[in-house]
Design a protein around this nucleic acid. Structure first.
Lengths: 194, 194, 194, 194
DNA sequence: CATGAATGAGAGTTCATTCAT
DNA sequence: GATGAATGAACTCTCATTCAT
């Protein structure tokens, strides 16, 4: 069972998530969080001493989640192609969910805050690691193109970063997202297997 | 000859560029620009009433530049492949130049400011237009992969956006940049021509 | 007992009153109030976010006071003539007191600020209501002139407004004030009762 | 014929009048007048060095006008009652005309500016002089109430000041204005002559 | 542990006014 | 005479952060 402190923390993060989605990272002030949570200044500061700390928690949790899903899929013995499709599908669903609103905040955090930069690099690297694992798997199965798996993974991750940013800014339409993420398949699969 | 006002404007933009590169967009205040230019508060406000106005000028100028270069290359009757290599090379050189420091500022502006969002969308669209023109050219010459040129162009532009952001944040190394932009070639060129 | 916040608020209003009397409404800045109260910028803003809010409090309090006095006099069963004399006397004393200095500020507030306009209208209407009640009373007792009580009340209130403004601007002498307010008696009383 | 300088001055005053009516005195800046007249900063300063100077010209001109009309009426040998009715009618028309919009500005000027205070006192005194002349005339004709003519005149002028201010702030309706100014007749005329 | 009053720094903005051209 | 670029002083307002209760 969660301690009282943990429950308060959880509640703060939930409210903060709403605020980040609504206003982005930089526009959310400690005062906003006070008001949203009903906590006093001092009370809030006891748990988090900046909005940066909050968003770090949120980003790390999301990353953890992605890691777990990936490990689960691996454990189920899926093929590289199946995992690729799962990977793409997960992304599509994320981009179309309200949670993608956090992306804007995460981007702002990365751009505005030294610590944010670091977290962002961590997050990218973690995704690259999973992706390059997947690429190597596909190469071993003989279905993905040749080349340095890490470099290929970075290419995909950078593209997805661009897509996420664009979605955060303009709110891309479903069709746009589907057709764009589909180019990853096109890019990865060997010519004769498409 | 430039009027006095225009000369002052130009000088302000030069100093602002340095500041944006050094500190990003959001950290530059009107006061900073006053100090950097040696102008008084009121003197500066006569020309620009926010740092946003300054960065808009800078972004628009860069875009104009890219348009002009593209038109020039077209006029010279270059082949699609030559233009693609030129396109990639231009990007590589941009990413490795000190000017890429402006990218961070431009990103922040897009993420923080409603007007910045719009300018960013403009900029992306302008690049997509040029790129899809190039893609169609290559398809007509029979050297590029099939598919909707605009969609393909967006894919490339989104990837480059991601790469630019990563470079702005982490300062990617030349080799990384070269190998990454090279995937564009890999993606675009028909299998048998690589 | 007053809370700490209420005590601070009261202290601010006292200092603000002094400032308004000395300098009028428009010349008093938040900075002035900070200095007069010894509070910091942020500390002051916690209680009042503009000098307008302060003067509204002061005007409303004065109005409340007048209402209470009127009700008290009514409850004591005074005759219309007695109440008229009380009314005139109260005004004379107000005009000759240092508090009349607030009148200038209140006038400025009414003229400069949209909200001030509204507060001023409220204040006038509240005085008109009391005055027309008094007029009707005198008419019922057969001692005041005939005519629509509200219209008569407005006439008196407008005159008093003019007198207050003049006093605020020029600092009218006691004799002037006495003779002027005495015309209200002259105007209201039936010929044969003067 | 007017000199070029005088024509420019006249033009400035016309534009300034529009501005004062639209925004009141305090909200009109020298910058506003520059824009409205199309003159440059320096060009405007050559003619008027503050908005205060402009409104002084406008107020003095209005006063001159009232003086002239009064003298004209006197010269025509009108009776006191005829002149009173003319006086009241002139006021009613003024209050209902767009020019009454200047009243707000004149009031602000009187309340905000030391020089404005003085001009206001002048203006009041000039009206009191005319009015007390009229009162004495009526007393000599035996139609107006007894009492010190100057004191009676002040009473009327203060009431009209209050009415003008109220009109400037709330935009009183014609019926209200008619019935209110009519109380001046009621007040001045001897009982048996009403 | 929590409260919320208070701090103080600093960003933004606007204007009257001057002065070199 | 006129222009308009530039000055510099003020004022408003908002936060992150602290600390006495």
């Amino acid at each position: 069972m969660l301690s009282k402190s943990d429950r308060t923390k959880k509640m703060i993060l939930e409210k903060a998530t709403e605020l980040f989605i609504k206003k982005g990272y930089s526009a959310v002030t400690m005062k906003d969080v006070c008001e949203a949570t009903g906590l006093s200044r001092g009370g809030l500061y006891r748990h988090f001493s900046s909005t940066g700390e909050m968003i770090i928690c949120l980003i790390r949790a999301e990353q953890q989640n992605a890691d777990n899903e990936f490990k689960k899929a691996l454990a189920e013995g899926k093929s590289a192609l199946q995992m690729l499709d799962l990977f793409i599908d997960t992304h599509n669903r994320f981009l179309l969910s309200p949670k993608s609103g956090l992306e804007l905040a995460a981007n702002q955090f990365a751009l505005l805050d030294e610590k944010g930069k670091q977290i962002n690099a961590e997050r990218a690297w973690s995704t690259v690691k999973r992706t390059s694992y997947l690429v190597r798997l596909g190469q071993e199965e003989g279905v993905f193109i040749d080349g340095d798996p890490e470099s290929i993974a970075w290419h995909i991750v950078l593209f997805l970063g661009g897509l996420r940013t664009k979605t955060a800014l303009d709110g891309a339409k479903p069709d746009f997202i589907y057709s764009q993420t589909n180019w990853i398949r096109e890019f990865l699969l060997k010519q004769n297997l498409k």
